[in-house]
Nucleic acid binder design. Structure first.
Length: 266
DNA sequence: TTCCAGGTCGTTT
DNA sequence: AAACGACATGGA
């Protein structure tokens, strides 16, 4: 059964296709999305969001519709650069992903690209089959159950994931979410293969720590071009971003990342 | 063939 | 504290 939801200040395309989430595919105008044991589809026409296969309560939270968007935009729109990014990425929302799936996805992301990350996640998704009409997807196994066949082609990331699968438990994942930002980050970084950038991605996209400011090569580029040309190291730029954009730094980062990649030349 | 890709880690200045 | 180079693999 297809259900409707009225939305404002929201772009499904910008939200799903801004590099924060990898478990979706676009087929015949519908986005098919897999999250834990849920497999659902959705599409948007202006203020109408149609969805099927999950509850309204879940989708509102997953899509980040339960925040005051106007207040967030007002908070970070401190300069012309950010204002321009916001206009171009109008309706972009930070998703609320599952922490484990987010962790696996971003460990795969290092020195990779979105297409390959998506394929790698697909090959790791060996769990129960999920069906929606004629479409099929599979669960990503929970911590302790991840198995990477040799043809998964994970490269040097395979050893990281194998160790993370050994060490991580559901209770450890829950504990991270209850810690303050800096402690949570420190704890995540005890995992081999998780440095500052990936920890920030997991905290931002998986745990909702909106003060996190992950700095990859694109954010580094856009920040050096517009904010802090003198800062060279990603961790310095990250700390600049957190100080400058404050509690909504994560949103600022996502606008800048998507804007720099999708609307400006390399 | 060579270079680079949503980084991290160990080693050397 | 900052600056390398290696790491697997695939696509341009």
């Amino acid at each position: 059964m297809i259900k409707n939801l009225s939305v404002s200040n929201f772009s499904l395309q910008h939200s799903l296709e801004s590099g924060q989430f990898f478990r979706y595919s676009l087929v015949d105008g519908w986005y098919y999305v897999t999250v834990r044991d849920m497999f659902f589809r959705l599409r948007q026409q202006n203020n109408l969001l149609e969805f099927e296969g999950c509850s309204e309560l879940f989708i509102k939270h997953f899509l980040g519709l339960d925040i005051d968007y106007a207040a967030m935009v007002e908070f970070i729109a401190k300069d012309d650069c950010m204002k321009q990014a916001i206009v171009c990425c109008q309706g972009l929302r930070l998703l609320n992903q599952d922490p484990w799936e987010c962790l696996v996805g971003f460990v795969l992301s290092s020195v990779s690209n979105i297409k390959r990350i998506t394929a790698n996640l697909q090959s790791l998704s060996t769990g129960d089959e999920l069906r929606l009409g004629t479409h099929v997807s599979c669960m990503l196994p929970r911590p302790g159950s991840l198995t990477a066949s040799s043809n998964a082609r994970l490269g040097f990331r395979a050893k990281y994931l194998s160790e993370i699968n050994e060490l991580v438990t559901e209770s450890w994942l829950r504990k991270i979410g209850k810690l303050p930002y800096l402690s949570a980050k420190e704890e995540l970084m005890t995992l081999s293969g998780v440095g500052e950038k990936i920890a920030d991605c997991v905290l931002l996209f998986g745990y909702g720590f909106h003060e996190a400011f992950p700095v990859d090569v694109w954010v580094q580029r856009v920040m050096q071009e517009n904010y802090c040309p003198k800062l060279k190291k990603p961790e310095h730029i990250a700390s600049f971003g957190r100080n400058y954009f404050g509690t909504h730094a994560g949103y600022a980062q996502q606008f800048l990342y998507h804007w720099r990649r999708s609307f400006l030349s390399s």
